[in-house]
């Protein structure tokens, strides 16, 4: 009897144990270990050396990390508004009864499921200065060549354009779901009042999909802060560190120079920045409501 009771008590824990093991091994332990690392110097293969707050002092003197954060913010400033506007426009159009609607919905979603590295290599060819398709088109139109990835003032914008193309499909789907939840009777009432299409969009559609906009903004922000594959494959952080994102810099510190302690410090600090930005976004959007 007692044995059965024990089994009954332990069984639920056994059922959730795979998740708990995963949670501990891949989330809880790495987070705690990273916090410990911030106070150490460690190159992975030698033993750790306690260095107190040295890594934090170095962080606040590291101009390249500051540049990497500014670059990431530039990326976000281009990428997020562009992504939201393009996704919303596309979702609005794909919500209407147009020809081949299913095909277009699938087509816009396709880049989301293609490997990031493949997309990046493809766009690298499109952006190539001397032989890229984009510059060929510009030249055929009589315009000059653009240093998409070779001009330090242009490179991050080019990456933001590519990232938007790659991810917009996901946000189109989210906006489509949002648009389909807007009650039809609002539009019917607006029609009776003689509202224009723009007025209906501005006064009915937009306020109704506010939660979706909030979610898309948060997801794009977190996704944008994680910018890594694109600059890693396309530019390596150049030209002149103009596409060096914070994540790429953290990666370089960890896996090119093996500064695990410093890299963990950068990671922890950067995670705090992301949390702060997301909290600010949350309160701003909620206050606007």
């Amino acid at each position: 009897m007692k044995k059965k009771g024990f089994k009954k008590r332990i069984f639920p824990y056994l059922m959730v144990s795979p998740y708990l093991i995963h949670l501990f091994l891949f989330i809880v332990f790495p987070v705690i270990f990273s916090l410990v690392l911030t106070f150490h110097k460690w190159n992975i293969i030698s033993s750790m050396e306690y260095v107190g707050f040295d890594n934090f002092i170095r962080l606040f003197q590291d101009r390249l990390f500051l540049k990497a954060i500014i670059n990431t913010i530039i990326f976000l400033l281009v990428h997020i508004p562009l992504q939201i506007v393009v996704a919303l426009v596309l979702a609005y159009l794909l919500n209407k009864k147009i020809m081949m609607r299913g095909f277009f919905r699938a087509a816009f979603f396709l880049p989301v499921v293609i490997s990031g590295v493949v997309v990046t290599i493809l766009w690298q060819q499109l952006f190539a200065y001397d032989s890229g398709l984009l510059n060929k088109i510009l030249m055929d139109m009589g315009a000059g060549k653009v240093g998409w990835l070779t001009n330090k003032n242009m490179a991050m914008t080019s990456i933001a354009l590519m990232a938007t193309w790659k991810n917009v499909g996901l946000y189109v789907i989210l906006f489509l779901i949002g648009l389909q939840t807007v009650p039809q009777m609002y539009y019917e009432a607006a029609d009776v009042e003689g509202a224009s299409s723009w007025q209906k969009f501005w006064h009915i559609t937009l306020p109704s999909i506010n939660p979706t906009i909030f979610m898309v903004t948060i997801l794009s922000t977190i996704g944008g802060f994680s910018l890594f594959i694109e600059p890693y494959v396309m530019t390596g952080g150049g030209p002149l560190n103009s596409t060096l994102s914070a994540m790429l810099y953290i990666y370089k510190q960890a896996f090119e120079y093996y500064h695990m302690g410093y890299s963990a410090t950068l990671g922890v600090f950067f995670a705090m920045i992301i949390m702060l930005v997301v909290v600010i976004q949350k309160y701003t959007i909620e206050n606007e409501k």
């Binding site: 290599i121 690298q124 060819q125 190539a128 200065y129 001397d130 032989s131 890229g132 070779t150």
Partner: peptide, 9 residues
């Protein structure tokens, strides 16, 4: 050229 070397071209 400042273009990257690519297997395809």
């Amino acid at each position: 050229t400042k273009d990257q070397q690519a297997a395809g071209q």
